[in-house]
Design a protein around this nucleic acid. Sequence first.
DNA 1: TAGTATACTGAATAGTCATTCATTTTATCC
DNA 2: GGATAAAATGAATGACTATTCAGTATACTA
Lengths: 199, 199
Amino acid sequence: MARNSDGTKRAAILDAAVVEIARHGYHQTTVAMVARRAGVADGTIYLYFRNKEEILFSLFERAMGRFISEGRSQVDQGTTAREKLRRIVELHLTLVGKDRDLAIISQVELRHSLHFMDQLSRNQVGEYLTILGEVVAQGMEEGSFRHDLDPVFAAKAIFGVLDEMATDWVLSRRNKRLESQAKAVVDFLLGGLSINPAV
Amino acid sequence: MARNSDGTKRAAILDAAVVEIARHGYHQTTVAMVARRAGVADGTIYLYFRNKEEILFSLFERAMGRFISEGRSQVDQGTTAREKLRRIVELHLTLVGKDRDLAIISQVELRHSLHFMDQLSRNQVGEYLTILGEVVAQGMEEGSFRHDLDPVFAAKAIFGVLDEMATDWVLSRRNKRLESQAKAVVDFLLGGLSINPAV
DNA sequence: TAGTATACTGAATAGTCATTCATTTTATCC
DNA sequence: GGATAAAATGAATGACTATTCAGTATACTA
């Protein structure tokens, strides 16, 4: 039952799926296409995944796992909340911008169904938002962030900005690097639009 | 060739599609299901729409049309950039929050494929972003917004925050009204996180 | 009211693909 | 090297559904 001992074949299938799904979309991608690119037989896919949808889930788990562990690591390397925020913004944009195929999947293909998004947001994305929320809470304690923020709300807002930049980059044909937006994002998040926010 | 003179039947089909697609997702919704709910025969659908995908497109056009025209109207009713921003944020959250089925479609189901999103963002969403960008530019001229903003960037960031709030509301089971977040959103957009943004 | 154009119907078609499983290949062990 | 188990294969299956179109109903005209 141990399949191909190391995760080699499973990883190969996931790698193939990233390319095919990014190129054709989840629904236009057949299991046979993934099998072909991975260099295995159609049936082999089912030794590693219960069904086609589970490939998509696993894809996301693998990618989001990196996101979360590297995110935590970046946060731990910073000291002030501002610095932590800067680090996490840079990480987010860098990771998404590193692999366009994967970006297409995370920004577009994974958002297919309510059921699916629900699962994702409950688990992986939720943990990511928690990290963001902790940074905001620290900033409030430090006194560098406004005292009237709600960290849960702010975490979502931060995520919203990052996510929109990522989606915009995926949809644009320009090949300007995504991480080049990091400074603008941080400035916007810290300072907002207003010159004098105290209305 | 004039079909059913007024747009009655076409609208009925779109209305039915909203409900079915919101409930089951685009791919699990069959043309027959839409026809049944609309009270027409399967074939009738094809008198009004070239194919299934065109239903989805039309759905979005109809909804986004309201968004843009009401958005312009709200913006025109405001005088200062701040006030315009507040109005548009409230409108956005109110419109999305008004109809959960439609919200599911705009936040989830419409993001089906790269090709599809591309079309949308180029047309409808692009126009919406333009409106937001104009408000930002006005704020900069007025002197109420920071002079170092890029209106195109800021428009995307604003949209990102609004979109994330909308998606979060769709996914959450809580029935807190979406528009109750308007003040928090405006405060965040205007003031950002920092107490003293001038780093 | 007959005749014609328009709108609608829904059963049949035609194709697609996820998934299965009997069979073959490869690895392991004594 | 023969036996056994684990992995992998890929052709066949079965289910599903978008779309078509020959036929029917309805509205309009003169």
